[in-house]
Design a protein around this nucleic acid. Sequence first.
DNA 1: ATGAAAGCGCTAACAA
DNA 2: TTGTTAGCGCTTTCAT
Lengths: 368, 368
Amino acid sequence: MASAEQHAAPATAATDGGRRTRPVTITDIARVTGVVPSTVSRALNKPGRVNAVTRERIQAAARELNYVPNSQARALISGRTGTIAVVVSDVTNPFYFGLIRGTQQRLKAAGYAQLLIDTEDSGEHEAEMLQKMRRSLDGAILAASRLPERALTALAGEIPLVTVNRNVPRVQSVVIDTPTGIGLAVEHLVGLGHRDIVYVAGPENSWSNHARWRAVRAAAQRYGQRFRHVGPFPRGRRSGSAVADAVLASGATACVCFNDLFAIGMLPRLRQRGVRVPEDLSVVGCDDIFGADFCHPPLTTLTAPIEQAGEVAVAMLLARLEQPVTEHPGTAPSRRAVLLPATLTVRESTGPAPTTRLSAVRPPAGPS
Amino acid sequence: MASAEQHAAPATAATDGGRRTRPVTITDIARVTGVVPSTVSRALNKPGRVNAVTRERIQAAARELNYVPNSQARALISGRTGTIAVVVSDVTNPFYFGLIRGTQQRLKAAGYAQLLIDTEDSGEHEAEMLQKMRRSLDGAILAASRLPERALTALAGEIPLVTVNRNVPRVQSVVIDTPTGIGLAVEHLVGLGHRDIVYVAGPENSWSNHARWRAVRAAAQRYGQRFRHVGPFPRGRRSGSAVADAVLASGATACVCFNDLFAIGMLPRLRQRGVRVPEDLSVVGCDDIFGADFCHPPLTTLTAPIEQAGEVAVAMLLARLEQPVTEHPGTAPSRRAVLLPATLTVRESTGPAPTTRLSAVRPPAGPS
DNA sequence: ATGAAAGCGCTAACAA
DNA sequence: TTGTTAGCGCTTTCAT
């Protein structure tokens, strides 16, 4: 019972009266061991600089009392908080799962805590949050930031920053090279006989969307293809029906989607309208998110090494944080942009171009 | 150019030399406005208790210098950090997406930051992390904790805690009532003529797994069914093939899976072995995660209001944090457990029991 | 090797 | 209404 009690609240020190509890501080340890607080601090942090036996005694006491350092107090002095923010526009977008996992792992390994921030797809929100938290962060990783370029540059001057899938001058970034991958995808479609490819555009405020858009256009031109686009459509799977209808209306035999969510979202609607994938229409997604392999049919898509992107982003950030203070403050940290290749994963949503145009397509029958 | 410069680094004050920068503090504002720091503090935090014109002057200066309060320093005094940890066993498990979204939203609305912790499915890890971070947290929400009951109770004594899908005495919890839902699922299967139902068990260390297991067993008995189980299987979709093989070996005509990941994972293997769903085998999942509606065939599953669970968990936690300090420290906060109903969502993976036993099932052909 | 003292940025008594 | 003082927990000189 007594030991159970100890387990229940081991991290507290009884005051004189013994009726209230309070977190254990180095002062408590000092009192118990008969030294001064600064000695306790040394014994715990620079064990080499304190007598072996006192060190033992102090460390034992600390363990016994279940002492946990107050990181706020530490941060107040050092200015370093040990936490890194990972900023995403929407936590529920499966695209970010891998990113979050990648950053989480590396951050934990390095002893940092990960603060997850969801900006709800609003640049203003993003700026505001970051501004507010600046002081309690050692750095931030911005995934698909919605911030205008100048705001991003400005922010990078205030807090160590690494962006993911967003390339602006003077801020470190890791971007997944979907454009090159998209070239592969278009080549794949052309090889299957498609001559009329449409790009399904994502939201206007997405940097990736524009990068992919340009890539499809360039690749189409390279192969002498007709190129068009539909959209832009709002983020998310709910856009699926509208996307499907628009693609069908375009008359193209193949589409390249801004992302897998669009592609997956199209599928039910296409089925509903009697369009077979890939016999009547080939669909290419982008990112290879969770679900891309088990939707029906499984998606041909660009596999993005997003988890790796998270890892690299953390590595870049930590490298900067942990490098010795520059002698020459004028020397800006050399801008570094890492480009990660995306590969084409061919599954079952792409096939030979139909020899005849779609004819017996059922008309759109109301929203979804 | 000058104003651009201001935007680039507005949150710093030049020292005398003017060649280095440093975050703006209330002392800086005090100096600029000719008052003392405590007045600045008041002007910013209790505007009512300071002369209108000085207040204006101070607030203007704060805005001008782009002052941001140092939350560490504040925390040092108040003991409150404004951050809540959300602890999950695996960030990439889609089950948690909704939870994280729910907590994130409510937390942000209440002005708290969300610290996401991934325990990598290890109870030890979980305990260690929480222990280490205790001091920098105002509270924690534990999703599907792997901690033994006594450790959980002990922890609850040190830091305000709410568990999700884990019920232990004396700690507040919100649990999704999948057991009752499972009764519905079994009833549904019985109604379809199934007489031989197998439960696919999840990992041993999962509280939910045991709850669901018991529920299936109870329901089966209630309906005079034969009941068996296969497993336990390790978490994750990779278990899919093994699950499928085990279910097939059991000879049952229907299975209820620990979660959707198992169910989705089974599907390709079943197809590979020539087993049709639901004609030859009915499959029921649990949770209704992202993907359950677009896998093939779409899954009959228990829809868990997981986002709502996150919201409720936050509400419970904040209610406790923000309630005035109890006059009687002995009065433990009244234990409150919220039970959220899960509903049965019937899609296409369940159907009438086959009239004849499976015969021409292809043998398992190596892993996956 | 250890102790004494100062201070990080902020807030909260208490005084004036 | 404003200033003065003290102190949160910790680290870091500087003495000893």
